[in-house]
Structures are given as structure tokens and as C-alpha cells.
């Protein structure tokens, strides 16, 4: 059996790693169970591992690449003694103290737990989607945009990440269609203006993908007009999905209170969950701001909340 830790942090995006930096500096010797490599946005480093230039994280006037920023976060946490396990948590038990967290058969125990498991990309849920992933269909514009030089491609979505990806992809593609089911974009003003001004970017309003086509590789999609329900084919060689995220809360379903949309409930202006000693931060509990810097801020809150909780409950 492993020793009882002061703090275990589950997840390693901006929230988890900021919590790790603060907890490590507070001599809590945190263990970060950082997740395992994947290309689905649920991975060590979190969603920023799949992005390019991060232009809105304070302190980087020229922007910084998402993966590089997260490598820096991790190095900073390591420097102060945070330890890492590169695996996924398989089960938790918060019903008694010390809390228990399993990675496979290996049980870890902790006086406080900080949940920062983030959110992962939603998929369309259409036939052919899994089969064509990596064969023209992608969830990572940064990784795969390069392979679509001088081709026609489409991005599905209308939020900041969709618009950002579509804009990024115009560096490579000859034409980028942004397929959006509404008649206006949810993305921030600066991103919207950039998209609308980009001559290589065409926004297909009131449209949704109802079919993905292709044998060996993606050859096109069928679009449906959300108002008239008319269908029409769109020939593209690449399709990038950016339709939003779902919080990674399946592990905590029976243990912590969830909102109807699956996000964890925390007390207002705090990282406290309804179980004393279990704290949550970052996108797993934020269905509103969802920014790297707000995640980092809430990670700091969680570490301070955990530290104070330990002071008030010694032993």
C-alpha cells in the first residue's frame, strides 16, 4: 500500500498543474496522476496540447505554442517536487478518509484530492466517423493541417476553437469551409472578425453534417440546411471537428454532485465540492469561462483551499 499523501491531483491541464505548483510550494508533495497519451484532447497537458499559438495567456506578448506552454507548466511543478504518474485513474472512493484513488490495481491514498480532469472534444456521432479518423477526419488541426496543403477542407463548429482552427487551417488549405448550424458564430469578436475577413474561409450558415463519406479516406460530407432540411453534398478532402467539449466526470458520477450538463458542482467562489477535502478546478467544473488562464486561476484556488483544509484538519 502506498503512503498517505497530503494531496493527489487528478488531471494535468492548466488547472491541475497550477494546483501542483502551489501545492508543491506549500510542501504538500502532491502526486499528479496526469492521464495517458491520446489524440482525443483527454491527455496529459489537456486541451492545449492540441492547439497552436496561445495568444491570450498573460506573460507571453508574442504568444506561445500550446504544447510548449504545458511543458513549461509541468517543468515548473516538477521543480518544486510534484511527482507524476502517467496513467489514467480507473476508480475513486471519496466515501471515507483517507480518500482512495486507483490506477489499475494500484491504490493511492490522500488526505485531500484536487479534481482537474478537464473536458474532452465531442464527436459528431455519425457512422464512418471512427473509421475515417486519421484518414481525412481529424480532431487536431495543429497536428494534421499540414497534410491538407492546397486542398479543400471543412471545420465543423462555431465557437472559439472552431473559428481558430478554421483560421489556422487557411495557412495550408486552398479553401476552408466553416460548417455552423446557427446563423451567427459563438466565437469571440476578435476571432469572428478574423474569420469573416479571411478570403480563404467560407462560412456555411445553418448547416449541419448528416453524413460522412469515403472508403479508404474521406471524400466529402452531406450537409443539411437546419431551416429547410434540404440536403447537399460538399466535396472536401479533410474534415476537422470542433463542436465543443464534454466534462470528464464519469469517474465521479456516484461520488460527487454533477450539474445536469455533467459538470462538477463547486461552492460559489471556492473550489470546494460537497465532500470536505475534495476540491475541483478547471474546465471539469467550469461551463462558462473555459479559458486556460481561468483554469490556472481556479487551480491556484484549489491548492490554497486544500492547504487550508489540511491546516484545519491536522493528522
Amino acid at each position: 500500500m502506498n503512503d498517505i499523501r497530503d494531496a493527489i491531483i487528478i488531471g494535468s491541464g492548466p488547472a491541475g498543474l497550477t494546483a501542483a505548483i502551489y501545492a508543491a510550494r506549500a510542501n504538500m508533495a502532491p502526486l499528479v496522476i496526469e492521464g495517458e497519451p491520446s489524440s482525443t484532447s483527454d491527455q496529459p497537458g489537456g486541451q492545449l496540447m492540441l492547439t497552436t499559438d496561445v495568444e491570450n495567456f498573460p506573460g507571453f506578448p508574442d504568444g506561445i505554442m500550446g504544447p510548449e506552454l504545458m511543458t513549461n507548466f509541468r517543468a515548473q511543478a516538477s521543480r518544486f517536487g510534484a511527482e507524476f504518474i502517467t496513467s489514467k485513474v480507473t476508480r475513486v472512493d471519496f466515501s471515507e478518509r483517507p480518500f482512495k484513488i486507483w490506477v489499475g490495481e494500484d491504490a493511492h491514498r490522500a488526505r485531500t484530492v484536487i479534481v482537474s480532469t478537464g473536458a474532452q472534444s465531442l464527436m459528431l456521432g455519425l457512422p464512418n466517423e471512427d473509421r475515417l479518423l486519421g484518414h481525412g477526419l481529424s480532431t487536431c488541426a495543429t497536428c494534421d493541417g499540414f497534410f491538407f496543403r492546397d486542398q479543400d477542407i471543412a471545420v465543423v463548429g462555431g465557437g472559439d476553437s472552431a473559428v481558430e482552427e478554421a483560421t489556422f487551417l487557411t495557412r495550408f488549405a486552398s479553401k476552408v469551409y466553416l460548417i455552423h448550424r446557427r446563423d451567427q458564430l459563438r466565437a469571440s469578436k476578435i476571432m469572428r472578425e478574423r474569420a469573416l475577413a479571411n478570403p480563404k474561409l467560407d462560412i456555411l450558415w445553418n448547416s449541419q453534417v448528416v453524413e460522412i463519406q469515403g472508403d479508404e479516406k474521406l471524400s466529402g460530407v452531406v450537409l443539411e440546411d437546419t431551416l429547410t432540411h434540404d440536403q447537399r453534398p460538399l466535396i472536401v478532402q479533410g474534415l476537422f471537428i470542433a463542436i465543443g467539449h464534454h466534462p470528464n466526470t464519469a469517474l465521479f458520477q456516484d461520488q460527487l454532485e454533477l450539474k445536469a450538463n455533467g459538470y462538477l458542482v463547486t461552492e460559489p467562489n471556492s473550489s470546494k465540492t460537497q465532500i470536505a477535502g475534495v476540491f475541483a478546478c478547471g474546465d471539469v467544473q467550469d461551463d462558462y469561462y473555459r479559458q486556460a488562464v481561468t483554469a490556472a486561476g481556479s487551480g491556484c484556488m484549489a491548492a490554497i483551499d486544500a492547504e487550508r483544509w489540511l491546516e484545519e484538519h491536522p493528522g
Binding site: S39, T40, L133, G134, H135, D144, G238
Partner: peptide, 25 residues
Amino acid sequence: EIMSIPALIVFENGEPAKKLIGAKP
């Protein structure tokens, strides 16, 4: 025909024998 990375291809006797796409543990 790489369209997505990371892509891992196992070559046996000089020929591609298996292709894996995406990061995995």
C-alpha cells in the same frame, strides 16, 4: 499517405505491415 500524426508504421522486410494513428499509452 500520412494524413494524421503521430502515425506509426511497422515495416517488415521493407514493406509496411501495420499502421497506427494517434497517440496511445
